[in-house]
C-alpha cells in the first residue's frame, strides 16, 4: 500500500486527475480565497510594525522605520509593566486552573454518591457557557462593598470589621482574575482529566487494594501517574496560550485604581492601536505576543520530548 502511494506521488499531478477532480477543485477555490482574505491578508499587515504607517499613504508608501517601534515598546515602562501583568496573570491562571481541575476530577471520581456525582458535574460545567460579561458582573456583585456575599461573610466572622473594596486593591487584582477563571472553568477543564481517570484500568486499583493501599495511596500511586500524559499535553497547549490569557476579564473588571496591574498586551493593543490610531505600535505589540507564544509552545514541546513525556509535534 505504502509502495503504491509513493509511486503515485512520483508521477505528479496528471491532466487526467485534474479533469476528474474538477468539482473538488472548483469547491476549493472559494475556500482558498476566503482564507487568503481573512487570514493571510491581515498577516501581511505585520509590515505595518516596521513602518510609520499612515492610512493615507497605505502599506506600500508608508515610511519604513525598521525596528524603531519595537525599540520604543521595550524602552517604554508602561509596556514592560503590561508584559509583566500578562505573564503574571497567564501563569496564575495556568497554575490555579490546572491544579483545581485535577483536584476536582480526582475528588469527583472518588465521590461515592452516584446521583450526587451527576448533579455536581452538571452544575460545575454551567459557568463555562456563560459569557465573560455575565461572569464579570457576578464577580463584581460577589465582591461588592454593598451587600457582596464575601464581605458579608468576612464581616460576620469578624475577620474584617468593615467591608473591604477588593476590586480597588492592586495587590489582589491578579488573584481575583485567577479565581474568576477557576469559578468559570474548573468543571469544564476537569472533563478531560475525568476521562483520563476513567480509562485507568480498574485492575490496578484492585491489586493495590489487595496490597492494603488506602485511598490516598491509590490516588498518589495510580491516579496521578495515570493522568500524567494528559497533564503534559494540556500543559504544552496551555503554555502557548499564556499570553492569550488576558483580555475580556481584565478589560471588564479593571478600573482606574488598578490600571497599573490590570492592563494586558491585548488591552494595550486596543488602547494604542485602535483608540489612539497608532496602528504601527499596536501591530508591533501584537507581533511580539504571537512570536513569544509560538516560541513558548515549541520550548514546552521540546522539554516534554526530552523528558520522555507526551508531546504535540
Amino acid at each position: 500500500m505504502g509502495m503504491t502511494l509513493q509511486s503515485e506521488k512520483k508521477q505528479g499531478i496528471t491532466l487526467k486527475q485534474l479533469k476528474s477532480q474538477k468539482v473538488l477543485i472548483l469547491l476549493s477555490i472559494p475556500f482558498i480565497i476566503y482564507v487568503i482574505i481573512f487570514c493571510y491578508v491581515p498577516l501581511g499587515g505585520w509590515l505595518m510594525a516596521f513602518q510609520n504607517y499612515k492610512p493615507k499613504n497605505g502599506l506600500l508608501h508608508s515610511e519604513f522605520v525598521g525596528l524603531a517601534k519595537f525599540e520604543f515598546l521595550f524602552s517604554n515602562d508602561q509596556f514592560l509593566k503590561v508584559i509583566r501583568n500578562t505573564l503574571a496573570m497567564g501563569v496564575i491562571n495556568l497554575v490555579l486552573g490546572t491544579v483545581t481541575a485535577i483536584l476536582f476530577a480526582i475528588l469527583l471520581s472518588e465521590f461515592r454518591f452516584n446521583r450526587g456525582k451527576k448533579l455536581v458535574q452538571t452544575i460545575s460545567y454551567l459557568p463555562h457557557f456563560l459569557s465573560w460579561v455575565i461572569v464579570t458582573g457576578i464577580v463584581f456583585d460577589v465582591l461588592s462593598t454593598e451587600n457582596g456575599i464575601v464581605n458579608e461573610i468576612l464581616v460576620n466572622l469578624h475577620i474584617i470589621d468593615k467591608p473591604f473594596n477588593f476590586l480597588a486593591d492592586p495587590k489582589l487584582f491578579w488573584w481575583i482574575v485567577g479565581f474568576a477563571n477557576v469559578w468559570k472553568e474548573t468543571g469544564w477543564n476537569s472533563i478531560i482529566y475525568l476521562a483520563a481517570i476513567t480509562s485507568i484500568s480498574p485492575d490496578l486499583y484492585e491489586a493495590a487494594s489487595i496490597d492494603g493501599a488506602g485511598r490516598l495511596a491509590k490516588i498518589w500511586h495510580i491516579t496521578l501517574p495515570g493522568i500524567k500524559p494528559t497533564f503534559f499535553i494540556l500543559l504544552i497547549m496551555n503554555i502557548g496560550n499564556v499570553l492569550n490569557a488576558g483580555f475580556e476579564v481584565q478589560y471588564l473588571l479593571g478600573n482606574g485604581l488598578v490600571q497599573s496591574v490590570s492592563q494586558t498586551i491585548d488591552i494595550y493593543v486596543l488602547k494604542y492601536g485602535i483608540s489612539q490610531a497608532d496602528y504601527s505600535l499596536g501591530t508591533a505589540a501584537g507581533i511580539f505576543k504571537s512570536v513569544v507564544s509560538l516560541i513558548l509552545i515549541v520550548i514546552a514541546n521540546q522539554l516534554a520530548k526530552k523528558m520522555g513525556e507526551e508531546h504535540l509535534f
Binding site: 485534474l18 475556500f31 482558498i32 491581515p42 499587515g45 505585520w46 499596536g282
Partner: peptide, 29 residues
C-alpha cells in the same frame, strides 16, 4: 482520500490556528 490538493489546502488552514494577523491588521482589513 485521493484529492490532489488535499495536503496544501489542509496546510493553509492549519497554519491559521497558530498564527493570526492580530487585532490591528484584522481591524484594518
Amino acid at each position: 482520500k485521493n484529492f490532489i490538493f488535499k495536503k496544501q489546502l489542509s496546510l493553509i488552514y492549519v497554519i491559521t490556528m497558530y498564527v493570526s494577523g492580530g487585532l490591528i491588521p484584522v481591524f484594518l482589513v
